[in-house]
Design a protein around this nucleic acid. Structure first.
Lengths: 122, 122
DNA sequence: CAGCGTTATGCAAGCCAGAGCATAACGCCA
DNA sequence: TGGCGTTATGCTCTGGCTTGCATAACGCTG
């Protein structure tokens, strides 16, 4: 068998976010959360899916709305399923542009990493 | 005058790092620290330059050496300037490859950001 | 030989985002 | 009408990282 690679489990990771005077205005994680809301129809379900407490998820989005000055979610409490949340058009538009900004970055980075750290490390 | 842009001070930021089973093996910040050591000739000076306590800088590098299993710095205490630290060839090589991995990412991201968020936000 | 600046490292304190717990309103449904 | 699941939000507590403080050795230098 081939010699055991020294970088078992080694991986490269990237993080992209937007900020204004030190405050996070949008990040890949937050985008993932918003998309989970869109997919599941509720913030509670989205939080469970990303494995974070509802408390935390709500706080993050709440802070975001405060900073941007407009709503990201249109919510209803009560009803058949207890309630639900959906994204506002503005939120959707913002997410779309964010995706365009970060498109391909992770893949590029991983490709370079794989090439440069192919069979040895250090 | 032109309408005040809604994204005054808005910026996109990226972070790149390597990790192995949850532990940071190298990051852009750590690389910056190492390069500051190379530039100044001492870890203490490097820490001052990056505006972090010596305590912190040393801990980070110490942990790194432990994880990789080899020395990043060759150090001397005492002497004319009190002591000094220089990078090992292995550390230099690692840094060089890290740079190749992340080359241009920041610039690309910023270009896309500027284009997509040119005159309005949301 | 006393002093300085650096490396090296233990220990205690602080700081803060994240997480837990609690409460309340809402609207359907059995 | 009592129960359920969701939104919404206050208060508190904690786990972990960052920092500060302290100590010691080293080896020039005045």
């Amino acid at each position: 068998m081939a010699p055991a690679s020294l970088h078992m489990g080694m991986e490269v990771r990237t993080k992209v976010w937007m900020e204004q005077d030190g405050q996070v205005m949008l990040s890949d994680w937050r985008v993932a959360l918003l998309e989970a809301v869109e997919a599941t129809g509720s913030l509670a379900a989205a939080a469970r899916r990303l494995d974070v407490p509802y408390r935390t998820a709500w706080q993050k989005l709440h802070a975001l709305e405060g900073r941007w000055g407009f709503a990201f979610l249109v919510t209803e409490s009560g009803g058949p399923d207890g309630g639900r949340s959906r994204l506002t058009p503005q939120a959707r538009a913002l997410i779309a542009r964010f995706h365009q900004v970060v498109a391909g970055l992770q893949e590029q980075t991983e490709m370079r990493f794989t090439t440069l750290f192919a069979d040895d490390v250090a």
